[in-house]
Design a protein around this nucleic acid. Structure first.
Lengths: 252, 252
DNA sequence: ACGGCGTACTGGTCAGACCAGTGGACCAAG
DNA sequence: CTTGGTCCACTGGTCTGACCAGTACGCCGT
């Protein structure tokens, strides 16, 4: 008997076809952010389906952050610019149900941040270096305010670095995963008894990283960055998972 | 004038409330994968809204991979197990954004693949190592078939490595960006006059990587992997961008 | 014990209706 | 000429009620 590979067949819903068509038009460039879709009643005639079907398609597109409908708007549904909202939502959702472990999130963050810093140490201009140093100053000042301010300044630092990496995928991934991690354990850090000591140590670490960036030693800078993230977050990761993260640091 | 920060106010739709309630019940654990939702008509009475509204909520949940409805199923919509599918979808959308240059995609791929291989060289079992070696054999055989077969075997190799990294974020990112890159330049490679030579060289590179994984030298393995990707794809990247990629390889 | 069949449901789609809200044209008052 | 109001055509959000094809399940005759 030849291996007759059969696949389960499932009906394609009408509203799915509509979603496909619109997504395709968007990918092709026939549609672009800022433009408007025809009104629902107009789409009804164009797609030759009922309004409920058109609406279900629009709901799907809306929940994916692709369009937005506002009641009463005579211009019709708006095509939104690309946004990280949906990506962030999915990642947060998975992290909340432990489908994504903290180990995976932080490991990913170590990789992303390390890469960004490695790139930055090679590609940075003097001006950008000064910018990074400026964020260090802001961090130093924020320590005396509260953890939230410090966290904000920390974000500013990492975003400055990511910008210098000149790779928007890194920027975006970094931003998303950073946000998710922070939302998971921000309060734990903020309420840590030694939170001030943590901030001081973190600042020290960041300073070392910038120093490595200045000298252009990308490899050392990346290693430092990963080590710092590990030190900062490891206590929140189950001990058996530690080797998985350390594997990203060792160079031997 | 004090800075009175106002926020745009927007109405909350009824179907959004339903989505929220169901998602919340899921996060709380009142609902869990495998269970069934009441039928649409039942939900109509529970939420005290019309069926269209219930359906729009279900469409949103379905498009997020949370539930699945099958016509005729008397048990009602099924709550799906958590899956990375939706995350993958969003990630793909991100990688397809127009403003993304090939340089960024390939740079990202170098980072992801390098990290996966670094992790794999530390975490792999002997069995997994054998598995990777097996994919090398498949690649060798595929060379004599055609580029498509080779490409498939290559994908199998990288997926095996990504699995060993035990980080699903790496897996997903790797898979997505690999697919996008391939879709952009697969035919260019396939129709290259020296495509067979390219395949042979690629195989050689992969063999070296596996050797480094065997010896557990994660750093060398990662470096090799990034170098290989660079060699493989650099010709398709504008020359001025080359330093941006080389910065990921140099160790000095 | 078993295949065939009916039935009571399901989800997918449709048609038509009402309402609150929007943008724009128009117009009168400053 | 600007400003504020009124009005209107139209929008999206929601509802009602209907039909159809498909499914699970139990009944039934064999």
């Amino acid at each position: 008997m030849a291996k007759a590979q059969f696949e389960p067949v499932q009906p394609v819903r009408a509203y799915e076809r509509i979603v496909e068509q619109i997504e395709e038009a968007l990918a092709r460039g026939d549609l672009s952010p800022g433009q408007r879709l025809p009104s629902e009643r107009e789409l009804v005639t164009q797609f030759a389906v009922s309004r409920s079907t058109v609406r279900e398609a629009l709901r799907v597109l809306a929940s994916n952050g692709i369009v937005r409908s506002r009641p009463g708007d005579p211009n019709g549904p708006e095509i939104l610019p690309y946004s990280l909202g949906a990506l962030r939502k999915q990642m947060t959702r998975l992290a909340r149900v432990d489908e994504l472990s903290l180990r995976e999130l932080i490991g990913f963050r170590m990789i992303m941040d390390g890469a960004a810093i490695q790139l930055a140490s090679r590609l940075r201009t003097d001006e950008q270096l000064a910018e990074m140093e400026q964020t260090l100053v802001a961090m130093r000042e924020a320590i005396d305010v509260d953890f939230e301010a410090f966290s904000e300044a920390d974000v500013a630092f990492h975003e400055a670095v990511a910008r210098v990496s000149r790779n928007s995928l890194i920027q975006v991934c970094n931003e998303v995963v950073r946000g998710v991690v922070l939302s998971l354990i921000a309060d734990k850090i903020a309420h840590a008894p030694n939170s001030r000591a943590l901030m001081l140590e973190s600042l020290q670490h960041h300073t070392e990283v910038v120093e490595a960036i200045r000298t252009g030693d990308g490899h050392a800078a990346a290693r430092l960055a990963r080590q710092n993230l590990y030190d900062y977050y490891a206590t929140y990761v189950p001990t058996p998972d530690h080797p998985h993260l350390q594997a990203l640091i060792d160079d031997a």
